[in-house]
Simulated assay, not measured.
Amino acid sequence: MTGTARTRGRRWLRIRGRILERDPICMRCASADQVRESVIVDHIIPLAQGGTDDESNLRGLCTACHDAVTREQFGYRERKAFGADGLPADGEWS
Rank of each mutant, 00 (worst) to 15 (best):
1 M>P: 01
1 M>F: 05
1 M>Y: 02
2 T>H: 10
2 T>N: 09
3 G>K: 11
3 G>M: 03
3 G>A: 08
4 T>Y: 10
5 A>K: 05
6 R>W: 01
6 R>L: 03
7 T>K: 03
7 T>P: 02
8 R>K: 05
9 G>Y: 02
9 G>C: 07
10 R>C: 06
10 R>E: 09
10 R>M: 04
11 R>E: 15
12 W>L: 09
14 R>A: 03
14 R>Q: 01
15 I>T: 15
16 R>V: 06
16 R>C: 00
16 R>G: 04
17 G>N: 08
17 G>S: 05
17 G>K: 04
19 I>Y: 00
19 I>D: 01
20 L>E: 02
20 L>N: 09
21 E>F: 12
21 E>K: 15
21 E>H: 13
21 E>A: 15
23 D>N: 05
23 D>Y: 05
24 P>T: 05
26 C>S: 15
30 A>N: 11
31 S>M: 13
32 A>T: 00
33 D>E: 05
33 D>L: 04
34 Q>C: 09
34 Q>W: 05
34 Q>I: 11
34 Q>G: 08
35 V>A: 04
35 V>Y: 08
36 R>E: 11
36 R>H: 08
37 E>Y: 12
38 S>W: 14
38 S>R: 12
39 V>R: 15
39 V>H: 06
40 I>K: 10
41 V>A: 00
42 D>K: 02
42 D>I: 07
42 D>H: 04
43 H>W: 02
45 I>G: 03
45 I>K: 10
46 P>F: 00
46 P>I: 05
47 L>H: 07
47 L>P: 07
48 A>N: 06
49 Q>C: 11
50 G>H: 10
50 G>W: 10
51 G>S: 10
51 G>V: 14
53 D>G: 11
53 D>R: 09
54 D>Q: 06
54 D>W: 02
54 D>I: 02
56 S>V: 14
57 N>D: 01
57 N>R: 04
58 L>R: 01
58 L>H: 00
58 L>I: 01
59 R>D: 06
60 G>I: 03
60 G>F: 08
60 G>C: 00
61 L>C: 09
61 L>K: 02
63 T>Q: 15
63 T>F: 14
64 A>S: 13
65 C>L: 08
65 C>Y: 10
66 H>N: 14
67 D>N: 04
67 D>M: 03
67 D>G: 01
71 R>H: 12
71 R>P: 07
71 R>D: 15
71 R>T: 12
72 E>I: 15
73 Q>V: 12
74 F>V: 12
75 G>H: 06
76 Y>S: 07
76 Y>F: 14
77 R>A: 08
77 R>N: 03
78 E>A: 13
78 E>L: 13
78 E>I: 09
79 R>W: 13
80 K>M: 10
81 A>H: 09
81 A>K: 12
82 F>Q: 02
82 F>E: 07
83 G>Q: 04
84 A>E: 14
85 D>A: 06
85 D>G: 05
86 G>V: 07
87 L>W: 02
87 L>Q: 13
88 P>G: 09
88 P>M: 07
88 P>I: 07
89 A>L: 08
90 D>M: 08
90 D>V: 04
90 D>A: 06
91 G>T: 05
92 E>I: 11
93 W>T: 13
93 W>H: 13
93 W>I: 13
94 S>N: 15
94 S>F: 14
94 S>Q: 14
94 S>C: 14
94 S>R: 15
